[in-house]
Amino acid sequence: MTWETHPVTPDRFEDFADVVNPNRRETHCWCLSHRLTAPQITELGEGSREQAARRLCEREHPPGVVTYRDGIPVGWCSISPRSDIPRLVKSALIRPVDDVAVWSIICVVVRGGHRKQGVTTRLLEGAVQHAAAHGAPAVEAHPVDPDGRMDLTMAFVGTRSMFEKVGFEVIGQTDAVASKMPRLVMRRVLA
């Protein structure tokens, strides 16, 4: 079994779409909500959310990475410098804990039919390696530490244990709440 993780550049867009929106529904998320406002989506995508997502893949820092198992795209991780994620930059609930120029993980998706097979660990490891290769001093995530089971049917912010498996440590808590639980601040220092 071989694993690879690559940034979502224009030539890998279809692989990204196969993971996050296999039916290519226009109203589907396309992982845009933290990066673009509705008017920006309209402007960038000429009315198409898919087109706006394609345009993000042309930027210096694409919006994330896709993980492949034996050449098949099986996972997506939205990761980039926090400064490239306007909703985090402006958030009053998920504020920076210090002035480290972290990269942030805001979403993780494992393709249907590939869940509970170790994809998330490989995906997060690949995302962290991608950030490190681009000079990130640290990577942060804001998972939920649920009391019971979370709805993991599509995209999610992850759980504490998921990030601990790949070397993240809890460094704080946000004022944001998801699934009635406070969101944590977890970090993996790279440099």
Rank of each mutant, 00 (worst) to 15 (best):
L44D: 03
T121A: 09
G158M: 05
V144F: 02
Q40S: 06
P137L: 06
A155N: 08
V65N: 13
Q117I: 07
R59N: 09
G113W: 02
S91I: 08
D84C: 05
C31P: 05
H130M: 07
L152C: 08
D99L: 06
C107I: 03
L44V: 12
D70Y: 01
V89T: 01
R149D: 14
V157H: 11
C107G: 01
L36H: 10
T120D: 12
G172T: 07
H142V: 02
V74M: 00
V97F: 04
G45V: 01
K116V: 05
T37W: 10
G135A: 00
Q117H: 13
G158Y: 08
M154D: 12
R59L: 13
L32S: 07
Q51N: 13
E26W: 00
I105L: 05
P143M: 08
W103V: 14
V109M: 07
A52T: 01
D145K: 11
L123E: 00
G47I: 04
L88M: 09
E169D: 10
H34T: 09
A141K: 06
V66F: 03
T153S: 15
V157P: 05
S48R: 08
L123H: 04
G75C: 10
W76T: 14
E46T: 14
R115T: 00
L88I: 07
L88E: 00
G112Q: 09
V65I: 09
G113H: 04
V100T: 15
E46A: 13
S80G: 14
M162V: 12
R87Y: 14
V110T: 13
V144N: 04
A127Y: 03
G148Q: 09
P81H: 07
T121I: 11
Q129E: 15
E60P: 11
Y68F: 09
